[in-house]
Design a protein around this nucleic acid. Structure first.
Lengths: 220, 220
DNA sequence: AAAAATAATTAGATTAATCTAAAACATAAT
DNA sequence: ATTATGTTTTAGATTAATCTAATTATTTTT
């Protein structure tokens, strides 16, 4: 059984190497990310090595072991399911959920998470569009493309945003774009590459190329 | 800000003196309850005294201070709201909720609890019939009477059970008595004091005096 | 009221997680 | 290739929570 703190380290290492799990993560990166000192990280890395959760070579950085990845996915699954709950049922805004989910992800009960998953109707993505690992540790892979790279006439549903800044999330709220909104590409303005889209078969809207780059959709 | 452990001690002291908050709670009682040693309790009592959460006289036992009571009620409020959530929305049985609620009660977020309360439609009692303290620390008081002490023709709703044993809870499930079930007293058999009741205006049932003693109703 | 039994506290260690300061190692620059 | 810079680890302390064993209080029994 992992301690609260060990879980945080494992999750941190996972996230710092998410795009390529073979990437060597450095002590300083982890220290910055967890807002602690490199000395503390060094100590913890030794401990996690003992528990076979990481592959660690002194001065060379770490990667997660098989077992470490499994643990990381469990934590991330819990985190993202709770985020869905907070947003869908407790009316939290996209940008308010993180701190609370950080705490909820450490609750230990297999039954709880199974039931929560069921209650939420087995969501595949969290409110930021990040995929929710399944109980057996598989991650749904979808072909996500930024709106800036699709063609006129294409359509799909919003499955993610690239930039988690409040400004973008607040803009999206304002114009009525949510996770799972359907998007249809009406026109692409050749002058500035801004895009005219139709949201949920209702209103149309022009978005700048900059914004189009940061909204990901899954075309069907 | 209280640590996880400090919260557990405060809650324990509250529960051990719930019926009469001026009662001096002994070191051994606390140690038994928290499954720790008297030595550890002694240490913690010193710390809680420093933080003005308890009134503590060596060798004489403790009571909660004003501030301690306030903190205890916050924790109990969270615990009981989570229990309602688990039973009503995640289909946990009455007797499965405790362990998980023990963890959830330590999550720190005022907004979370406000929203959860709202989502649950401001319940006044948890699934065991225990009252849920309000945000400002007041506890709804109801006139709870065991079924064994009411008269023929009286009616009310189930607001609690005295014995939290699995056997009783499972029996109640089986015969269809739940929290908030309406109960009408049809007859009291003078021979053995067993009681004939009507549940939710539907089926009637005989229950033994022993069971009648352990089901509390609130007459209206 | 003294002895025996019980309860509570202190003393001294231990473990997990953390820190600062110093030393060891690796990389980049001249 | 030597120096300078930056990164990582170790050494030594600290804090919170816990324990066992020994000591001190209190209560009960005779």
């Amino acid at each position: 059984m992992l301690s609260h703190t060990e879980e945080n380290y494992i999750k941190c290492i996972y996230q710092l190497s998410e795009n390529e799990l073979t990437k060597q993560v450095s002590t300083n990166e982890i220290a910055d990310n967890l807002e602690t000192t490199p000395a503390s990280v060094s100590d913890m890395l030794k401990k996690l090595t003992q528990k076979n959760l990481i592959n660690y070579i002194k001065y060379k950085g770490v990667t997660l072991s098989e077992q470490g990845i499994t643990e990381a996915l469990k934590i991330i699954r819990k985190h993202r399911l709770w985020e869905v709950f907070l947003v869908k049922h407790l009316n939290f805004a996209w940008d308010e959920v993180h701190e609370v989910a950080e705490q909820l992800e450490h609750i230990k009960s297999v039954l709880l998470i199974q039931r929560l998953d069921e209650f939420l109707d087995f969501p595949k993505f969290d409110p930021h569009g990040d995929p929710i690992p399944s109980q057996d540790g598989t991650i749904p892979i979808v072909q996500q493309i930024p709106i800036s790279e699709v063609n006129i006439g294409d359509h799909g549903t919003v499955t993610g945003v690239n930039d988690a800044s409040k400004a973008l999330l607040q803009y999206l709220d304002k114009v009525g774009i949510q996770l799972n909104s359907t998007i249809e590409i009406i026109d692409i303005i050749s002058f500035d590459q801004s895009v005219e889209i139709k949201i949920d078969h209702q209103k149309t809207l022009f978005i700048s190329q900059e914004i189009a780059k940061n909204i990901y959709i899954t075309t069907i």
